[in-house]
Lab assay of single mutants.
Amino acid sequence: DLSALRVEEVQNVINAMQKILECPICLELIKEPVSTKCDHIFCKFCMLKLLNQKKGPSQCPLCKNDITKRSLQESTRFSQLVEELLKIICAFQLDTGLEYANSYNFAKKENNSPEHLKDEVSIIQSMGYRNRAKRLLQSEPENPSLQETSLSVQLSNLGTVRTLRTKQRIQPQRTSVYIELGSDSSEDTVNKATYCSVGDQELLQITPQGTRDEISLDSAKKAACEFSETDVTNTEHHQPSNNDLNTTEKRAAERHPEKYQGSSVSNLHVEPCGTNTHASSLQHENSSLLLTKDRMNVEKAEF
């Protein structure tokens, strides 16, 4: 173990290094160091905050020279020094078990990766560091076993998940096959086929009936047209017969005018059967003409 005197000496050296690497504005270890034209180094955030307070150039807090945003430059070497100082402080805390008085939040800088452990060898070769390295080497064999167990647990979990997924996939297939086998029997399929065939026959029977009705309507229309044509021909046949009657009536009127007047009046009210309204109107006109002729003949006879 380190003596108290040596611990104090190391602590004083760390404090001196820390004062050199402090920012003059925030009085902390410089984060993202930036250098000016006057070779003074500050935190990048502190300098941008200072420049944004005034429009135009501002003055350096140490030498009062003008500073602009374009004049600022990043210093990589200074950032490396800060990183190495942080590593020294971490090693000091691990070796002594004491917390550094002016320690900052170094938890963000710590890294437990194997590459980081290899890099620590180049920091300080001390008894405390050696003991700590031995402890780490002793704890390393235990870690692979834990990793193997965790991997086995994960693989077993994956296997159970896969088996569950396969079961879920197989179950719908089985149910679907069961439904297909038990849903419709052979008799049901035959009945469905016969039902479809009967429906098709009914459709075939319905369509000819409609065509037959249309044919019957067409035949009825044709018969009505033929009947009207026969009526017209009958009226045409009746007209010459009426003319013959008129000639006979004229002759009778010349011989017996008194008797014919009474008979002509009675004939006005008689309509021949089986004739249309057109034929009756023609008869009325003929009878009126005959009456006028008879009157003329009677007057001539009187004179």
Rank of each mutant, 00 (worst) to 15 (best):
S3C: 05
A4S: 09
A4T: 06
L5F: 04
L5P: 15
V7G: 07
V7L: 12
E8G: 07
E9G: 13
E9V: 04
V10L: 08
V10G: 10
Q11P: 14
Q11K: 10
Q11L: 07
N12I: 04
V13D: 03
I14S: 15
N15K: 10
A16T: 08
A16G: 10
A16D: 09
M17T: 13
M17K: 15
M17V: 05
Q18H: 07
Q18R: 07
K19R: 12
I20N: 10
I20F: 07
I20M: 06
E22V: 04
E22D: 05
C23G: 15
P24R: 00
P24L: 14
I25T: 08
C26W: 15
L27P: 12
L27R: 06
E28G: 06
L29W: 00
K31M: 14
E32V: 11
P33R: 11
P33H: 09
V34F: 10
V34D: 13
V34I: 09
S35F: 09
T36A: 02
T36S: 15
T36P: 01
T36R: 13
T36K: 13
K37R: 04
C38W: 15
C38S: 14
D39Y: 08
D39E: 05
D39G: 05
H40D: 07
H40N: 10
H40Q: 11
H40R: 09
I41M: 15
I41V: 06
I41T: 01
F42V: 01
F42L: 04
F42C: 14
C43R: 15
K44I: 05
K44R: 08
K44E: 05
K44Q: 00
F45Y: 03
F45C: 08
C46S: 15
M47L: 13
L48P: 09
K49E: 03
K49T: 04
K49R: 10
L50R: 08
L50P: 03
L50I: 03
L50V: 06
L51F: 08
N52S: 03
Q53P: 10
Q53E: 06
K54E: 04
K54R: 11
K54N: 08
K54T: 06
K55E: 04
K55Q: 09
K55T: 05
K55R: 01
G56W: 01
G56V: 05
P57S: 06
P57H: 04
Q59P: 13
Q59K: 09
C60Y: 15
C60S: 15
P61L: 06
P61R: 03
L62S: 15
C63W: 12
C63F: 14
K64M: 01
N65Y: 11
D66H: 03
D66Y: 03
D66E: 13
D66V: 04
D66G: 04
D66A: 12
T68S: 02
T68A: 02
R70M: 11
R70S: 09
R70G: 10
S71R: 10
L72I: 12
E74K: 12
S75C: 03
R77G: 12
R77I: 07
F78S: 08
F78L: 02
F78I: 11
S79G: 00
S79C: 07
Q80P: 01
V82L: 03
E83D: 04
E83K: 13
E84G: 07
E84D: 07
L85Q: 15
L85P: 13
L86V: 01
L86S: 03
K87N: 05
K87Q: 04
K87T: 06
I89V: 05
C90R: 11
C90Y: 07
A91S: 04
F92V: 10
F92Y: 05
Q93L: 12
L94H: 15
L94P: 14
D95E: 12
E99V: 02
E99G: 09
E99A: 14
Y100H: 04
Y100C: 00
A101V: 03
N105D: 03
N105K: 09
F106Y: 03
F106S: 14
F106V: 10
A107T: 06
A107E: 08
K108I: 15
K108R: 09
K109N: 09
K109R: 10
N111K: 10
P114L: 12
P114H: 06
E115K: 04
E115D: 12
H116Y: 01
L117I: 04
K118N: 14
K118R: 14
V121F: 01
I123F: 10
I123T: 07
I124N: 05
S126R: 06
M127T: 02
M127R: 07
M127K: 15
G128S: 06
R130T: 01
R130S: 13
R130I: 11
N131K: 08
N131Y: 09
N131D: 07
R132H: 02
R132S: 05
A133S: 04
A133V: 05
A133D: 07
R135K: 09
L136F: 06
L136P: 12
L137Q: 05
Q138E: 05
Q138H: 06
Q138P: 01
S139N: 08
S139C: 05
E140G: 05
E140K: 08
P141A: 15
P141S: 07
P141L: 14
E142Q: 07
E142V: 07
N143T: 06
N143S: 05
P144T: 08
P144S: 06
P144H: 03
P144A: 06
S145Y: 01
S145C: 02
L146W: 09
L146S: 06
Q147H: 14
Q147P: 11
E148G: 12
E148D: 12
T149S: 05
S150T: 01
S150G: 14
S150R: 14
S150C: 03
S150I: 00
L151P: 06
L151I: 05
L151H: 13
S152I: 00
S152N: 12
V153I: 00
V153A: 09
Q154E: 05
S156A: 13
S156P: 14
N157S: 14
N157D: 13
N157Y: 09
L158H: 11
G159R: 12
G159E: 11
T160S: 08
R162K: 04
R162G: 09
R162I: 06
R162T: 04
T163N: 14
T163I: 00
L164M: 11
L164V: 06
R165S: 13
R165G: 05
T166I: 04
K167R: 15
K167T: 00
Q168P: 08
R169Q: 08
Q171R: 14
Q171P: 13
Q173R: 03
R174G: 14
S176Y: 00
L181F: 01
S185Y: 02
S186F: 00
E187K: 08
D188N: 09
D188V: 15
T189I: 08
V190D: 11
A193E: 15
T194N: 05
T194I: 00
C196F: 00
S197C: 02
V198A: 00
G199A: 03
G199V: 01
G199R: 14
D200H: 03
Q201R: 02
Q201L: 06
E202V: 00
E202K: 12
L203S: 06
L203M: 04
L204F: 09
Q205K: 00
I206M: 12
P208H: 06
Q209R: 15
Q209P: 04
Q209K: 11
G210R: 07
G210V: 05
T211I: 01
T211A: 05
R212M: 04
D213N: 09
D213Y: 00
D213V: 13
E214G: 14
I215F: 00
I215M: 01
S216G: 08
L217W: 14
D218E: 08
S219C: 12
A220E: 09
A220V: 01
A220T: 08
K221N: 09
K222M: 07
A223G: 02
A223D: 12
A224D: 01
C225W: 15
C225F: 00
F227L: 09
F227C: 11
S228C: 02
S228P: 07
E229G: 00
E229K: 11
T233R: 03
N234T: 08
T235I: 01
E236K: 03
H238N: 11
Q239K: 06
P240S: 05
P240H: 02
T247I: 02
T248I: 03
E249V: 01
K250N: 02
R251H: 08
R251C: 08
A252E: 11
A252V: 06
R255G: 08
R255K: 07
H256Y: 13
H256N: 04
P257R: 07
P257Q: 13
E258V: 01
K259R: 02
Y260F: 10
Q261E: 12
G262S: 13
S263N: 14
N267I: 01
N267K: 14
L268W: 00
H269N: 12
H269L: 15
E271V: 01
P272S: 07
P272L: 00
P272R: 02
C273S: 15
C273W: 00
C273F: 04
G274S: 06
T275I: 14
N276S: 01
T277I: 02
H278P: 09
H278Y: 01
Q283H: 12
H284L: 00
H284Y: 03
H284Q: 13
E285K: 11
E285G: 02
N286I: 12
L289F: 02
L289V: 04
K293T: 03
D294N: 10
D294Y: 13
R295K: 06
R295G: 14
M296I: 07
M296K: 08
N297K: 06
V298I: 05
E299V: 00
E299D: 08
K300N: 00
K300E: 01
A301S: 14
A301D: 11
E302K: 09
E302Q: 03
F303S: 13
F303L: 11
F303C: 14
F303V: 09
